[in-house]
Amino acid sequence: MHLDPFELSQPTTIEEAVRLRAEHVDGSDYLAGGTDLLPNYKMHLNVRPRLIALGNVAGLDGISLDRIGAMARLADLERDRAFASSYPGIGEAIREIATPLVRASGTVGGNLLLETRCFFFNQSEFWRASLGYCLKADGDRCHVVPQKEKCYATFSGDLAPTLEVLDAEVEIAGADGRRRVPLERLYDAQGDGIHRHHMAPGELLVAVYLPKDARERVATYLKLRVRPSFDFPELGVAAAGRFDGDRVLGLRLGLGGVETRPRRFDELTDPVVGSRLSDERIRAIAEGVVRQSRPVHNTFLAPEYRKRMVGVFVRRALTKVRDSARVA
């Protein structure tokens, strides 16, 4: 499978990258590790005439305990001993991503901004043409939930839920300079599988910042998939908590792989702060998440099952966080 010809830019500074992207705002893509973008390009999905490769851009790399460069390779994060021992929960999530070979090239920024996925989108030109295309690429209707307004493609990044429950922030560079936003608010609650985050066209993800107390949180990531490798999540649940004995000092829960964005459920977890995380409370939170989650039939496993498993995985993640905090 070949790629259609495109122009390749290899800027060396963030400013230059952003400027290039702004110059070709409808006609370019940033290229990080390539493991998500290039398969899509090979299948002629939303191909642009210019790629702006980020590999030579200074200031996008680096791994420290409070900052991860957007271009940090997933495998490097996995292997960084200091990082891994400080954030075992992030390590769990990374090891669940795709395959070691994908992680060798794939980047943190790429995983956070992963293109949403759908059985009716991630197909060849031939395949999509045979069905008349879809909303997300070249078409005007959705085949998952037949209508013309909204795309249901699923956000399948494994890292975002975990970083969200650690209250990570992301730094974004744009034509007007830099800004920092909580990761959780990067993803658009009113958006869909196409318009999925609050980044202006041309903006560039620079780095992820972890708050000081992130290391004090016990975090975990549980992923549902058919194969223990290769597969994107059928759902992914991240949880993180801080405890004083039995008392909850802070609790966060994140869900990915089910809807068009990874989301947090603070309204369900905040009320627990200050009290004990009992089995009953865990169950109540799990039920709350299940009620709110709406998987559709665009992944391998049936949506009814995935919805049900959301409850099981939330309960397990919260229980695990609580119990490992006790042991620690």
């Binding site: 390749l8 290899q10 290229l31 390539g34 490769a53 070691p100 070979l101 994908v102 060798a104």
Partner: peptide
């Protein structure tokens, strides 16, 4: 020295 999927790698990079 790092295992890499050559089918997803642009030669120029």
């Amino acid at each position: 020295g790092r295992p890499t999927l050559s089918c997803l790698t642009l030669a120029r990079l």
